[in-house]
């Protein structure tokens, strides 16, 4: 699952720490999300979408796994 969190964050001139505090997670989680090592839960995805004022589809890009 790819995401545009880093891009949206940079466009809004927001630090990882600020974003982490706003959505109630640690900075390490934001780092893991941005690098694609961790996929957010649905509640966190909604909190991120609310924070950026956009939809979940604009943040997360679902990709079918290769069979």
């Amino acid at each position: 699952m790819k995401n545009n969190i880093a891009q949206l964050r940079k466009e809004g001139h927001i630090t990882q720490e600020e974003l982490a505090n706003a959505v109630g997670v640690s900075r390490q989680t934001i780092i893991s999300l941005e690098s694609g090592r961790y996929t957010a839960s649905l509640p966190l995805a909604f909190r991120l979408a609310n924070y950026f004022g956009t939809t979940i589809e604009n943040i997360f890009v679902y990709e079918e796994e290769e069979k």
């Binding site: 997670v25 640690s26 390490q28 989680t29 839960s41």
Partner: peptide, 15 residues
């Protein structure tokens, strides 16, 4: 205190 509370309930830590 806030960091500790976040760390305890954080979904990545639980995962």
């Amino acid at each position: 205190v806030r960091q500790m509370e976040i760390a305890q309930h954080e979904e990545r830590n639980i995962y």
